[in-house]
Each structure stands twice: as C-alpha cells, then as structure tokens.
Simulated assay, not measured.
Amino acid sequence: MTDRVYPSSKPATNGAAAAGAAGANPSFPATKAQLYNATRPAYRPRPPPRHRRSCCCSCCLWTTLFILFLLLLAAIAGAVLWVLYRPHRPSFSVSSLQISQLNLTSSSQLTTKFNLTLTARNPNKKIIFFYDPVAVSVYSDGVDLGDGSLPGFTHGKKNTTTLRTTVQTTSQSVDSTTATALRSDLKNKSNLPLKIRLDTKVRVKVGGLKTKKVKVRIVCGGIKAAVPTGKAAAKATTADAKCKVDLRIKIWKWTF
C-alpha cells in the first residue's frame, strides 16, 4: 500500500498570504515616521559656553573691591593727616583803607590812589605757606579803580603778617556806561561800596612735604568808603569787611 503524507497545518488562504506578503514588504511611498524615525529625539542646539561672562563678572567684582579698598585707605590716611596736622586755610582781613585821591573828570579820565593795609594770619601749627608776589585791585560795582602789588612772603607757623601797599591809577580812560555808573556812586560821598581782590600763587609745606604752587584769590567786601574832599585823605569803614579765601590745596589726594 502506498503511504500518504498529511500536512501539519492547513495551507494559508489567499487573503492570509496576501496579508503576510504585505507585512513583509510594506507598501510605498513610506510615511514620514518611517522616513525620519519618529522615535528619535528632536535635535536641540547646545547653549554657548558662559566662561567669558563669568570671567567678566569676576573681573568687575575684583575691580570694585580694589577701588573700595583704595577709598578705605585714602579715608584712613586723610583721618591720620587731619589728626596730625589739623590743616586750616589762612585768613586775611582789611586793617585800614585810606583814599587819598578819587577823581573822575568830565572827559571820563579816572585818577585814584588808595593806601591799603592787610593782616594775614596762619592758624596752623605745622603748616607753612610760601606766597608769590600778589596782584592787588580795588573795585566799585565792577569798575576797576586801581591796581597795585605786594612782594612775595613766607607765612610761618602760627604767624600774623601785616601787608601794606598802594593801589592807584592815573588818567585811566573809562567808557561812557562805566563813567555814568561811577558818577552816580560818587554822588553819595560817604557810602561808596568797595571790594579788594588779591591774586597770587602759594606753595604749602606740611612736615617734610612741599606741594606744587596753586592759585589763590582773596576777595574782601563790605567796605564803605568816603570820597575825599581837598587834600585830606578819607578813611574807609572796614568794620564790616570780610575776606573770602578761595584756596584749594591738594596734599596727595586730599583738598582743603
């Protein structure tokens, strides 16, 4: 007899075979997920490194701390300087002012002569002032009434110095506007307002240290003058006179 071989399973039907074939060989065109692999994480650019920014911040921080440290040292040194030397500005006062001549002609020619005495005081115990020659001017409501000078001098410690000079002008031409204003002031023969201005340079010695020369201006106001009559000199009233010293002296980095 002939042996028969029976298959272990039934042959796949046409539909199943078609499905299997479709699974093994996907249809085209493929989807975007199949092309780009949707399961792969999206690309994200890396942030730039922050090393430069952190370096700049550190540099600014250390610079600020260094400046604060220098300011602290300056404050300490200034306090030590103040305790050791007690620096003060010199003071000036008008001791007397005599008007020997004050005449304005009809042709606007001005002739004046003033005899001025000033007192300069140095209140410092450890500071010396060295003055260059001093330029002196007398004014009345902005009108220059005369010019003079003082020789240079040394202002020692706790010293009081008396300064005398003559301020004058001869036949100085005055413009019409200035002449009109001055004639109006001269009508009040006992109340002519005057100002005295001194300009010079000064060097300061503090202990063993000498500063550079600095400009100084002294302005004295509050002076009332009488217009002289005849040959007798008129004396100005200086009881209310006050002098302002515009002096800015730098010692290292400190100004007083």
Rank of each mutant, 00 (worst) to 15 (best):
T166F: 02
V134R: 04
A120Q: 05
H155S: 13
G156Q: 11
K32D: 14
T64S: 15
G230K: 09
S58E: 03
P87Y: 03
L110D: 07
L70D: 12
V227T: 00
R183E: 01
N14Q: 14
K250M: 07
L209F: 15
T229Y: 10
P29A: 12
T177P: 06
L102H: 02
P48L: 04
T154P: 06
K126P: 01
R164W: 00
L102M: 11
A232I: 05
R164I: 03
S8M: 09
Y6G: 00
P47H: 08
T162E: 13
T170I: 14
L198Q: 05
D141S: 10
S96I: 04
F92C: 06
P47M: 02
T162Y: 09
V143Q: 03
G156K: 12
V206K: 05
D141V: 02
H155Q: 15
V80Q: 04
T2H: 13
T63I: 14
R46W: 00
W252G: 09
F66N: 07
A17Q: 15
F69C: 11
S108V: 00
N159L: 02
F28I: 14
Q98D: 15
K244I: 02
W82I: 02
L35V: 11
Q98H: 14
T112C: 01
Y139I: 04
R183N: 02
A233H: 03
T39E: 15
V138A: 07
F92Y: 07
A239S: 15
S108L: 04
I99V: 08
K224Y: 05
S8E: 14
P133Q: 07
L247T: 06
D175P: 01
L186R: 01
R86C: 07
L65Y: 06
S54K: 11
T177A: 02
K242L: 07
C55H: 06
A233K: 07
R46V: 10
K32A: 13
T238K: 00
Q168F: 11
F153M: 07
V80W: 05
Y36Q: 05
T2K: 15
